[in-house]
Structure formats: C-alpha cells, structure tokens
Design a protein around this nucleic acid. Structure first.
Length: 231
DNA sequence: GCCCAGGTGGGTA
DNA sequence: TACCCACATGGG
C-alpha cells in the first residue's frame, strides 16, 4: 500500500499506541465545545469544564443558547480564557441559528469547504479549531495541524514545520494520505499521544519514543534533547 | 517562581 | 509578512 513517509509514521504510532478512540465526546456538539475550550489549554481542564457544563445542563445548543453569558463564563472558567471562549461559543450558536435554523445536523451536513468558511468567520475560531470540528464532528477528511504535529514533523526532519504555514503542513498530509476521515482522526489522536508520552516541548523522552529511529533528536543528532538554557 | 498546555486575533514595524 | 502580546486557569 501507500508507503509515504507520513504513512510509515502512522503505522509506527498505531503499532505502538493502538487505537485512540477519538474524539473523546458523546455528541457532535460536545466535540465543537471541546474543540473551542481546548485552545492552548490542557485537556484535563477542558474535561472539568465539560463536566460542569453537563452538570448544569448546558451541553446542548438550545440550553447553551438560553444561558446567560455570566453563567456560561462561570461554568467554563476552569478551561481558561473563559471570556473569549464564551464569546466564541456564542458566535458558533449565532451561526447555527442564523444560517441553519438551529439545526446542528443541517449545519454539519453543509459541504465541507462552505462550513469551514462559515466557521472561520466566527471570532475565536481559527484553522485548527475549524478543522477539528470538520473532522471529528462533521466527519470530513481534513487533517488537523496542531502544536504536537508541528513538533513531530520538525524533530523527525519530515518538514521544517516552524517555517511552514498551516495550509502547507495540511497539504503535506493531504498529499501523502488517502482522504479517509477515520484515518485522519486516528492519526491526529496518535500524534497527540506521542506528544504527551515523549515528544515534549522542553523535556523529550526520546528513549521511549516509537519514532526514535526516524528522529534526529532520538538519534542524538538534533539539538540537545535536554537544553540547559532557555529554549 | 517558572514553564507549559490539542490557539486566536489585534497591533505594530 | 513577521513578530509581539493579551487572553486565564491549573499542573509539574
């Protein structure tokens, strides 16, 4: 089958970590909310905020739309940037009601390119959040590029990720992989697993890394894995 | 106390 | 275009 470098990386990660069963959510709406709450935020704190939203009965489009702003802000406070994220959630709900009559299924059935444009028009939704929603809530074959993806590409030498745009990196995956939403979803989840396991920002644990044979850092050829000064 | 965490948008040169 | 910064909370 396809033996592109990125497919080879996928095979290694899958063999090492196994299926990740992503996105961790029970409904498409929960995927959307989680994608917004996790912006530059540890997932642990997002989970807590999602639990609070459930406890207060706010994890549905209708209920969240009816909630007062200060209640919404207070409920998601643990996820950080709570004012900005509450505003973004309201922006998505406004889009849902104004363009799709409040029907989430209708919104998610929109052609992918159109939905992406609509999502990007919401203040607080950038390419990664939009693509997370497209992939994990709408089931579209778009690859999500995040900080973990950039780090993996950069350290393995597969791409100079720090110098390439989001679009360029996404194109890289789209060119080398078949457009399969299940594959894309699993792959991104595996990259996150790699990032949390060993491909840390400042303290990588290359000895335990399933990519160490492909990776300059793992081979000791890259920058010092344990920089003594600032990085 | 410092750095980090599944980003985004606005301002400035 | 390329940086710089604010946005906020919790954990190591």
């Amino acid at each position: 089958m396809s033996s592109s470098p990125l497919h080879a990386v996928y095979t290694r990660l899958y063999d090492h970590y196994g299926p990740q069963h992503w996105w961790p959510a029970e409904t498409p709406f929960e995927v959307i909310v989680g994608a917004i709450l996790t912006q530059n935020t540890a997932w642990r704190n997002v989970e807590r905020a999602l639990v609070r939203l459930k406890e207060r009965g706010l994890l549905s489009p209708a209920a969240m739309s009816a909630a007062d702003l200060d209640v919404l802000e207070d409920t998601i406070r643990l996820a950080g940037y709570f004012r900005a994220k509450a505003r973004t959630l309201r922006g998505v709900l406004a889009l849902l009601h104004e363009r799709y009559g409040g029907d989430l299924n209708r919104m998610l059935a929109e052609p992918g390119a159109t939905l992406r444009v609509q999502l990007l028009r919401v203040r607080g939704i950038g390419p990664e959040t939009a693509d997370s929603i497209l992939l994990y809530a709408a089931g579209r074959p778009v690859f999500v590029i995040d900080a973990y993806t950039r780090r993996m590409l950069s350290r393995t030498g597969l791409a100079p990720a720090e110098r390439l745009s989001y679009q360029e990196l996404q194109d890289l995956f789209h060119r080398q992989l078949p457009p399969n939403p299940d594959l894309f979803g699993e792959y991104h989840a595996l990259i996150v697993a790699l990032g949390k396991d060993c491909c840390h920002k400042q303290k990588p644990r290359c000895g335990a890394c399933p990519l160490r044979e492909l990776c300059a850092w793992g081979q000791g050829k890259g920058p010092s894995p344990l920089p003594s000064g600032k990085n």
